[in-house]
């Protein structure tokens, strides 16, 4: 059974100009221990998807889904309290700007201690105290912080960005979650820190047998350990499947464009030649195209594209397109 099973998740909100569908029938499956990358430009709804799973969406928004299952249990049918219990026990999330996501007025030790489940430490008061302290030090070691004594007493404003992200990972893995959602964890970081954090996440996924849902903006910064990739555009799922297959033989024009963009950024360009990119810009929420939302920007679009394409499968990948690329020659 899949750990996380999302079928046709739709999120609608009432904006100043009427009802907007910010997430349009998105499906996603995540197996236990799987590292899954969710790629999409800003505004594509990838963070919304994560929030819907964690259960921290604005209660005024409409969330409907054929299925939003966690380990076979329907998350949407639960009371907020049951939902919180599951979130607190099995899920964890880290964010893009770690310094802003740590409480500025508690020390690192206090914040990690809070995340350690109460059942983990037993005995008398003093025992529990010492136990917690060792647990905090262990967690810091596990995320690659050697100097645990100094870091434990620090406040977030005293930490560098990389260390702060490691601390928030330590907080996230303190209760041994089954799923870690990483919302653009390395977007604004310098390359060496970025590399460290990415390696750490890959290592933790294996050693803790933890699924990771990594949310990124471009194909280039998906984790090396990623097994499956999904691409979102304007709240619609474009393509998902096995990393190898998707990167080598993308079926969807959007995937193709994303890969080309990230490759070309490093390749040499002829003078005055244009950077490869899709024409046009991401539509605003007010002016969402009907049918396939990539339609107006897609070089292969035809009349049919005003109808939303159904999912199609090809070996290890699924895509939502009427005119797929790289069709195998039969």
């Amino acid at each position: 059974m899949d750990l996380l099973d999302i079928r046709n998740l739709t999120i609608e909100m009432d904006g100043p100009h009427g009802r907007v569908r910010v997430l349009d029938k998105v499906s996603l499956q995540l197996k236990e221990g799987e590292v899954h990358s969710l790629v999409g430009e800003s505004g594509s709804g990838k963070s919304l998807l994560a929030k819907a799973v964690i259960g921290v969406l604005n209660p005024l928004w409409d969330v409907t889904a054929d299925r939003l299952w966690w380990n076979g249990k329907d998350l949407l049918a639960m009371t907020p309290k049951q939902r919180r219990a599951i979130t607190g026990r099995d899920m964890a999330m880290i964010f893009q700007d770690p310094l802003a996501y740590l409480d500025p007025n508690s020390t690192v030790a206090e914040q990690i201690t809070e995340a350690i489940p109460a059942g983990d430490v037993t005995g008398t008061f003093m025992h529990r105290r010492i136990d917690r302290k060792t647990r905090v030090a262990q967690l810091l070691h596990r995320v690659g912080i050697r100097d645990h004594d100094a870091i434990m007493q620090s406040y977030p404003y005293e930490l560098s960005e990389g260390v702060a992200q490691k601390v928030s990972i330590a907080i996230a893995i303190a209760h041994r979650p089954k799923l870690l959602i990483a919302d653009e964890p390395t977007t604004a970081m310098e390359p060496s820190t970025k590399d460290q954090i990415q390696r750490l996440l890959g290592k933790l996924a294996v050693s803790q047998n933890m699924s990771v849902l990594l949310i990124t903006q471009d194909v280039a910064s998906i984790l090396p350990a990623t097994q499956r990739v999904s691409l979102l555009y304007c709240g619609q799922m474009m393509e998902h499947g096995d990393t190898e297959t998707i990167l080598n033989r993308p079926a969807h024009p959007y995937t193709d464009a994303m890969i080309k963009m990230s490759l070309q950024a490093h390749a040499e360009l002829d003078p005055k030649s244009k950077l490869p990119s899709l024409p046009g810009a991401v539509p605003t929420l007010r002016h969402m195209p009907i049918g396939c939302r990539l339609g107006p920007r897609c070089p292969y679009a035809q009349k049919q594209c005003v109808k939303a394409p159904l999912v199609r499968h090809r070996e290890e990948q699924s895509y939502y397109c009427h005119f797929p690329l790289n069709e195998p020659e039969s």
């Binding site: 929030k51 921290v56 919180r84 802003a100």
Partner: peptide, 20 residues
């Protein structure tokens, strides 16, 4: 603030969010 959102994403109850 983001850190309250992060705490909420950790599944903490509203009371704990408010007071802690």
């Amino acid at each position: 603030k983001p850190y309250v959102k992060a705490a909420r994403a950790r599944g903490l109850s509203q009371q704990r969010l408010l007071f802690r």
